[in-house]
C-alpha cells in the first residue's frame, strides 16, 4: 500500500499537473465547487419561474425540471459531450463539457430545493409583508428569501455532496478526475485492485462525510447565533 502511495500518490491528488492539465482529487473538488456556484443561481431562477403564476414562465420551467430529472446524469453528460459543441459553434474542452452538464443537472435539483424552501416559509409572512405595502419583489428579497435560505441550508449541502459524487461520472468521457486515475493506476499495477479501489472509496468517503459533518456544525452554529441577544441595535 505504501508503495502505491509513494508511486501514484501525487498523480492521484493532482493528475498530470504541472506536466498536463490539472486532474485527480484537485480537479474533482474544483469541478464540484464550480458546478455548485453556477447551478445555484440557475436553480433560483428556475424555482422562481416554477412558482410564478405567469404561464409563459411556469410551464417551460416545469417541463425542463421534469425532463432533466427523469434523465440519468450520464445521459445529460453524453448530450453535453456530443451536442453542446455543435450548438455553441466550436469545440469544448472536457472540463467545460462536464461543467455544463453538471450545472444543468444540478440546477434543476437546486430549483426543487429552493422551491421547497420558499414554499416552506409560512403564508402569514408573505401576507404580513404585503399588508405593510411591500411589493412582491421586496417581500421575496427581505422577508421570504432570508428565511427560506435558512430552511434550505441542509438540503443545499446535501446537493453539494451529491455533485461531488457526480463528478466521478466524468471518467466515462475520459476526464482525468480521481476515479479515472484510479482505473489508470489499476490497469498499470493489475495486482492490487482492492487497495486501489478501496483507497478511492475511502477518499470520497472522507471528503463527503467530512463536508456533511461540517455542514451539521455550521447549521448548529447558525441556530445558536439567532438565539443570542445581539449587541448592536437594528
Amino acid at each position: 500500500m505504501t508503495e502505491l502511495i509513494r508511486n501514484y500518490g501525487v498523480y492521484f491528488l493532482i493528475g498530470q499537473f504541472p506536466h498536463g492539465p490539472l486532474g485527480g482529487l484537485a480537479l474533482t473538488m474544483l469541478l464540484g465547487v464550480a458546478a455548485v456556484l453556477l447551478a445555484l443561481p440557475l436553480g433560483v431562477l428556475l424555482a422562481l419561474a416554477r412558482i410564478s403564476r405567469r404561464r409563459l414562465l411556469h410551464w417551460p420551467a416545469t417541463a425542463v425540471v421534469y425532463v432533466v430529472r427523469g434523465t440519468p446524469a450520464l445521459m445529460v453528460i453524453f448530450w453535453a459531450y456530443f451536442f453542446l459543441p455543435a450548438l455553441i459553434g466550436h469545440k469544448m474542452g472536457q472540463v467545460t463539457t462536464m461543467l455544463a452538464a453538471l450545472v444543468i443537472f444540478n440546477g434543476t435539483y437546486f430549483a426543487e430545493v429552493v422551491r421547497a424552501g420558499i414554499q416552506g416559509v409560512g403564508r402569514g409572512q408573505m401576507e404580513a409583508a404585503r399588508a405593510l405595502g411591500l411589493s412582491h419583489a421586496k417581500t421575496l428579497r427581505w422577508i421570504v428569501f432570508p428565511q427560506a435560505l435558512r430552511n434550505m441550508l441542509p438540503s443545499l449541502v446535501n446537493q453539494f455532496v451529491a455533485t461531488l459524487k457526480e463528478t466521478s461520472l466524468a471518467s466515462i468521457i475520459g476526464l482525468q478526475e480521481v476515479s479515472f486515475i484510479a482505473s489508470q493506476v489499476n490497469s498499470q499495477v493489475v495486482v492490487h485492485p482492492v487497495a486501489i479501489y478501496g483507497a478511492l472509496a475511502l477518499t470520497f468517503f472522507a471528503l463527503c462525510f467530512g463536508l456533511s459533518r461540517l455542514a451539521h456544525v455550521l447549521e448548529k452554529r447558525v441556530a445558536v447565533q439567532r438565539l443570542e441577544l445581539p449587541q448592536a441595535d437594528g
Binding site: 455532496v161 459524487k165 457526480e166 466521478s168 461520472l169 471518467s171 476515479s179 484510479a182 482505473s183 489499476n186 485492485p193 482492492v194 486501489i196 479501489y197 478501496g198 478511492l200 472509496a201 470520497f204 468517503f205 471528503l207 463527503c208 462525510f209 456533511s212
Partner: peptide
C-alpha cells in the same frame, strides 16, 4: 448507511466488479 452514501455509485460498481472478485 454513512459508508455507502458518501461514496459515488460509480466507485461502488468499480469496486464490486474489479476488486471484490479478487477476494
Amino acid at each position: 448507511v454513512e459508508a455507502v452514501r458518501n461514496v459515488p455509485l460509480l466507485v461502488h460498481m468499480m469496486f464490486w466488479y474489479f476488486a471484490m472478485p479478487e477476494l
